[in-house]
Design a binder for these strands. Structure first.
Length: 513
DNA sequence: AACGGAAACAACCGCCGGTAA
DNA sequence: CTTACCGGCGGTTGTTTCCGT
């Protein structure tokens, strides 16, 4: 760090310091402003500074943030400027409390992606990664204090299905492959997504997509949230392909509606399969400048300022600049009412391969997020406790049965087209998973993955005490519900019940074996 | 009204990957 | 191929606001 703090929030940085700053971009450094000392301000931004920054961006566009200070006279480092712009000054930022849908979506996404705040933000129109992160951290704290599992029960339960899919993915590496599409159908009144031969998909042709990377990140420190990701990335330009939702969907109440049917719309699809496609919503457009085409296709809503002024977003929405969350290879199922459909539907739209959605549970419970404005937290917790108590056994058994009997409707072995992005991604996914595992616990395959941990029984030995530790305040019913039943279920419940103060990290988990 | 705790928000820090020189 | 720079991301911390007592 080349900055030294001085007088509160003014950093005195000598030219020598700046010039000698190496690759460490951790703090504000690298200003090449000529002449002696540069005072870089820290702390809260003033309106005057905001105005300077806005003015700069309007003139020069986003990017080149380190030049902001040079050109605008703003005494802020580039990173600070970028952050300020991204989190506060960008157009079409949505301020205020998260809606219930957004909250549910975040929970769902976190169960699949872990702490990929930026990626979640890319899927939540008008929301920033920082907002989501703050929301999540608050939630973690809250639920930790209440001794509740971080995720709704059924989100955890997805993990066994993920195992199944991962396993199926391995088969792809050697089997025949064929293009796939996604067919949401219905079973028992909920959406079900199935892979279909790609040719079966009507509508605009997708990009000739390829999935470029499926990195597997380290576990979140709280030990939950394995995920993978994969982007539809027809142009190979990672840096510029962030799909900035507020750019894409300004004016959308919930921007994803413009890409996928609204919840209420989807609920009406119960009796009819709906063809989705990996490229849904993203018509091929070879012209990188034709933003309007894409915009009108994705979100035919008037008043698309971002596109009309053509000046916004470092994460410009390029044609094909589609960030597509891909196979986290988990099914989704939640304890909640609307959550059952809505969140799952979200998921199905993003995670094209991640499309096994289980039947809903006929358990009427309240969302822990349902209360407006994030208030009524105690109520939420009480409700969730009740929900767990009432519905958990039922849900667990059903989900477990579905998993164990192979009722999953995603059959990756049927996906055999070598040109299929999903095939590639699935294989890559597996490879990367494997590679990552090797790093951490070479002889304990899969133990990087909480879902595998959940199903591995690693915790069984300690489960009773952990269950006791959290179920105590929640009553005996819950305790009983958490007590190991079938192996898979019990181990899942066990991790769910892992004491918050002692949540093992992944490698530690493997060592526990 | 004062106080304390929790929640929400804002900003900084360090690491990392991509890229150009 | 190496190095430096830039920008993005996620973690963390500090501050402010809200709310219950």
């Amino acid at each position: 760090m080349s900055c030294s703090e001085n007088d509160g929030n003014i950093l005195m940085v000598s030219k020598e310091q700046l010039e000698s700053s190496s690759t460490d971009e951790g703090s504000c450094s690298g200003s090449s402003t000529g002449g002696g000392t540069v005072n870089l301000k820290k702390g809260p931004w003033t309106t005057a500074e905001d105005a300077l920054l806005i003015s700069y961006v309007q003139k020069h566009g986003e990017g080149n943030w380190n030049a902001v200070q040079r050109h605008s006279g703003l005494l802020r480092c580039g990173k600070s400027c970028r952050l300020r712009w991204a989190n506060h000054l960008r157009p079409h930022l949505k301020k205020g409390a998260f809606t219930t849908e957004e909250e549910q979506f975040i929970i769902q996404m976190h169960s699949k992606m872990g702490n990929r705040w930026a990626r979640m933000a890319a899927l939540l129109p008008g929301r920033t990664d920082n907002e989501i992160k703050n929301y999540w951290n608050t939630r973690v704290k809250r639920r930790s204090r209440a001794g509740l599992p971080l995720y709704p029960t059924k989100v955890n339960l997805q993990t066994s299905d993920e195992n199944q899919l991962i396993q199926s993915a391995t088969e792809l590496s050697s089997g025949n492959q064929q293009n796939i599409g996604i067919l949401p159908g219905t079973i028992n009144g909920t959406l079900e997504l199935r892979f279909l031969p790609h040719k079966a998909n009507p509508g605009p042709p997708p990009y000739p997509p390829h999935f470029s990377d499926i990195p597997v990140t380290a576990m979140p420190s709280h030990g939950l949230g394995y995920y993978t990701r994969c982007f539809l990335n027809p142009q190979g330009d990672h840096a510029k392909q962030t799909w900035e939702s507020e750019t894409s969907f300004p004016g959308c109440h919930f921007g994803l509606k413009s890409m996928v049917p609204a919840f209420e719309d989807l609920s009406s699809l119960n009796s009819e399969p709906v063809y989705l496609n990996p490229g849904i919503g993203y018509p091929h457009d070879p012209d990188p400048e034709s933003k309007k085409n894409l915009a009108s296709f994705i979100c035919p809503i008037p008043g698309n300022h971002a596109l009309s002024n053509g000046n916004f977003s470092s994460s410009r929405l390029l044609p094909g600049a589609v960030k597509m969350e891909l196979p986290s290879l988990q099914s989704t199922e939640a304890d909640y009412n609307d959550w059952n459909t809505s969140a799952s539907l979200f998921t199905s739209s993003y995670d094209a391969v991640d499309s096994y959605i289980q039947s809903p549970e006929n358990v009427s419970v309240q969302s822990d997020c349902a209360s407006p404005k994030n208030k009524g937290l105690l109520e939420d917790l009480v409700q969730e406790s009740k929900a767990i108590s009432i519905g958990k056994k039922q849900s667990l058994e059903k989900s477990f049965d579905d998993t164990m009997t192979g009722s999953s409707t995603v059959k990756l072995e049927d996906i055999r087209d070598p040109t299929s992005p999903f095939c590639l991604s699935a294989v890559s996914l597996f490879n990367e998973c494997s590679a990552k595992q090797d790093k951490c616990a070479p002889n304990l395959p899969d133990f990087l993955r909480p879902d595998v941990l959940l199903g591995s029984g690693w915790f069984i030995g300690n489960s009773r005490s952990a269950i006791d530790s959290i179920s105590g305040p929640l009553g005996e019913n819950l305790r009983e519900d958490l007590v190991p039943g079938p192996a898979g279920i019990s181990s899942m419940a066990s991790l769910e019940s892992y004491p918050w103060t002692n949540m093992p990290r992944v490698c530690q988990m493997s060592e526990l074996q």
